[in-house]
Design a protein around this nucleic acid. Structure first.
Length: 469
RNA sequence: GCUCCCUUCGUCUAGAGGCCUAGGACAUAGCCCUCUCAAGGCUGUAACACGGGUUCGAAUCCCGUAGGGAGCGCCA
């Protein structure tokens, strides 16, 4: 039987990395097994669901390249179907109407808590057939009273629950809308889902869902409950760190494959391998290898991985993302894709994100160069300007403005003046980039171009020399 | 409170009873390389939660304890 997995986020909050990793595991498993991956939006809570959250799910999945083979399905579009299944359960005596009021239930729970018992519905309408005028009933599922329900979980192994611990959950609210646990069961059944991969906060819901499936005469899917992702401090993921929209990582200059690589290694590993391409992940991934313990989100390792992917990517492939990063910084860059690919090539081993790359490369493209005061103080001294003057004449005479020629010329100039390369390169670097840090000086000159390089050099020479402090 | 789950360096992890003097990665410290910053290379600091068993032998199996987490809604 072909594998069918699904990712079923609820649009009540913005999709964050916890959800993304669950989606990734489901997607990888389907790809690995040659199966099908379904996207289903669980929007039955109309009060709390937002269009914005739905948008983030759709755009986020697209940015990450986690394409669904089917869907997106929306639960709100399936209400008639849920109603149909509830009617069937009612007719078969596997569900019943409960006329207990909220006040009565609150009181019941308060009493149970006072007795230090687990708060649960006591089945007071389970065997009644009468009605109560003036009260709109809910429909409850008749859960087995005895025996155990055993979950054979792919990551946790065998987990057993006593049916006596489970109460008769509401499957249809008094306003006529179905509830989450019920919709999941019907959807997974209708959509032929074979492997349910989800957060382990759902492990406790699983026996109820299995019991409903059994009442419907359907074999349960295989379950895999994956551990949660914690914040860097080991506490629950919060807005402060990580629990932000997945699209924020795009805004922050991360590559989707780097985020995916980071997330796949949270709770899963393949020997000592740290860096994976998407294809390598698919080839190596198995849900049975996923760990049981929750793991903490580590932004520094994500940063490292992002740079590793930047360094391994085809430069041309990251150009669009680099352009977007420039745009976010308010810089519209007219340079060609070819020039930007060169920028990627020389900057990527000193940048962890595209935003950093754009910020450190802005000097190539901005018209007004501002010189950092501290850098000037240190390098644009009388001595430094002397080197610059020499550089100006030799560079001005270069026939072909190529990296090789530039490197030779600058080296020769330093040698002729009897100083190390650093003595001439640093003043030149400040004149060209405005700061003491940049890619290698020859590559910087090459990308900047003859015209811009020479005019910046000349501008620096106009400055009054700074006395060394 | 009850039920269920979890526990190897600061963090992510390797580890299926002897291969473990517990390996790798991020971070961190030092060194090398070097035109700056990086990248890269080398080296170091650093962990089996605790207590009992079982076994010739336990990070690995069993039982407790402690700590952490989740669930117990007309939320998903």
């Amino acid at each position: 039987m072909p594998v069918v997995t699904r990712f079923a986020p609820s649009p009540t909050g913005l999709l964050h990395i916890g959800g993304v990793r669950t989606a990734l595991f489901s997607w990888l498993y389907a790809r690995r097994m040659g199966g099908k991956f379904i996207l289903r939006v669980e929007d039955t809570d109309r009060e709390r669901s937002t269009d914005e959250a739905v948008r983030v799910i759709l755009e986020g999945m697209e940015w990450l390249g986690l394409a669904a083979d089917e869907g997106p399905y929306y639960q709100t579009a399936r209400f008639p179907r849920y109603r149909e299944v509830i009617d069937r359960l009612l007719a078969e005596g596997k569900a019943y109407r409960c006329y207990a009021t909220r006040e009565e239930l609150d009181l019941m729970r308060a009493e149970q808590m006072a007795r230090k018992e687990k708060p649960r519905y006591d089945g007071r309408w389970r065997n009644r057939t009468d009605t109560r005028p003036g009260v709109e009933p809910v429909v409850r599922f008749k859960n087995p009273l005895e025996g155990d329900t055993v979950v054979e979980d792919l990551v946790h192994g065998r987990v057993s629950f006593s049916n006596a611990e489970l109460d008769d959950l509401i499957i249809l609210r008094s306003d006529g809308t179905p509830t989450y646990n019920f919709c999941v069961v019907v959807d997974d059944m209708d959509m032929g889902v074979t492997h349910v991969i989800r957060g382990d906060d759902h492990l406790n819901n699983t026996p109820r869902q299995m019991n409903m499936l059994q009442a419907l005469g359907v074999a349960p899917p295989v379950y895999a409950h994956v551990p949660m992702i914690l914040g860097p401090d080991g506490a629950k993921l919060s807005k402060r760190h990580g629990a932000v929209s997945v699209l924020q990582y795009e805004q922050d200059g991360y590559l989707p494959q780097a985020l995916l690589n980071y997330l796949v290694r949270l709770g899963w590993s393949h020997g000592d391998q740290e860096i994976f391409t998407i294809d390598e992940m698919i080839a190596a991934f198995d849900i049975a290898d996923v760990n049981k313990a929750a793991s903490a989100f580590n932004p520094e390792k994500l940063l490292w991985l992002n740079q590793q992917h930047l360094m391994r990517a085809e430069p041309a492939a990251v150009v669009p993302a680099l352009r977007a990063a420039f745009a976010r910084q308010g810089l519209s860059v007219g340079a060609s894709d070819d020039v930007l690919a060169q920028v990627v090539l020389i900057q990527r081993e000193r940048c962890k994100t595209l935003n950093e790359m754009a910020a450190n490369s802005a000097f190539f493209f901005s018209d007004a160069l501002s010189i950092d005061a501290k850098a000037a103080q240190k390098h644009l001294t009388a001595e430094g300007l002397g080197h610059l003057a020499a550089l100006e004449s030799v560079l001005g005479a270069i026939p072909v403005w190529s990296v090789e020629a530039l490197q030779q010329t600058v080296n020769a100039c330093a040698a002729a003046r009897g100083v190390g390369l650093g003595k001439v390169a640093q003043p030149l670097r400040v004149a060209l980039s405005g700061g003491a840090i940049s890619p290698p000086i020859d590559a910087t000159l090459a990308i900047l171009g003859r015209e811009r390089s020479m005019s910046r050099l000349q501008a620096a020479l106009q400055r009054p020399p700074i006395a060394p402090s």
